[in-house]
Amino acid sequence: ENVVSAPMPGKVLRVLVRVGDRVRVGQGLLVLEAMKMENEIPSPRDGVVKRILVKEGEIVDTGQPLIELG
């Protein structure tokens, strides 16, 4: 699984990683606000951040690609 998608609609509050960062399974990639709750979106696997597909403040839909892992 190379693309991390939004599990719910919401607003991207914070991106916690940068392109080139090594991440571990379960590590927070970004914080999504949904229904006034902050939800940290975890990495599904170990890898390297290849691309960040959203910006802070952006509104996303369920299933929208957020981050690509390499």
Results as ranks from 00 to 15, higher is better:
V23G: 12
M35A: 04
R24M: 11
V60Q: 11
G70D: 06
I67P: 15
P9A: 09
P42W: 00
V12S: 10
M37D: 12
L13S: 00
G47W: 10
N39V: 08
V12N: 12
M8Y: 12
Q27R: 12
V23N: 06
R22H: 09
K50S: 07
N2V: 08
E56V: 12
T62M: 09
L53W: 04
G26E: 03
L13P: 10
L29T: 05
P44V: 06
E33A: 07
K36W: 09
V25K: 01
G20E: 09
G28Y: 13
S5P: 02
V4W: 13
P42N: 12
L32D: 15
K55W: 05
P9C: 14
K55Q: 05
L53R: 07
V54C: 14
M35T: 04
K11P: 02
E1V: 15
A34I: 12
L30G: 09
L13T: 04
Q64C: 14
V25S: 09
V48P: 07
L66Q: 09
G70Q: 02
I67Y: 01
V48I: 10
E68R: 15
P44K: 13
D21F: 14
S43P: 05
I52E: 04
R14C: 14
G20M: 01
K36C: 08
G20S: 06
P9T: 05
V25H: 01
P44M: 02
R45K: 02
I41D: 15
V60W: 04
E38H: 01
A6F: 01
G63Q: 12
L16D: 08
V60Y: 09
T62W: 01
P42H: 09
L13M: 12
G57V: 08
V25E: 12
V17H: 02
L29W: 03
M35D: 13
E38M: 09
A6D: 05
R24G: 09
V15D: 07
K55S: 02
M37A: 10
V4G: 06
D61C: 14
V3A: 02
V17L: 10
R24N: 04
G57T: 04
P42A: 08
R51K: 13
D21L: 08
E68C: 14
E33S: 08
V17Y: 01
R22G: 13
R45P: 07
R51P: 06
L32P: 15
K36G: 12
Q27C: 14
M35R: 07
V23S: 05
R45N: 00
K36P: 10
E68M: 15
I52S: 11
N2M: 03
D21A: 07
R45Y: 00
M35Y: 09
T62E: 05
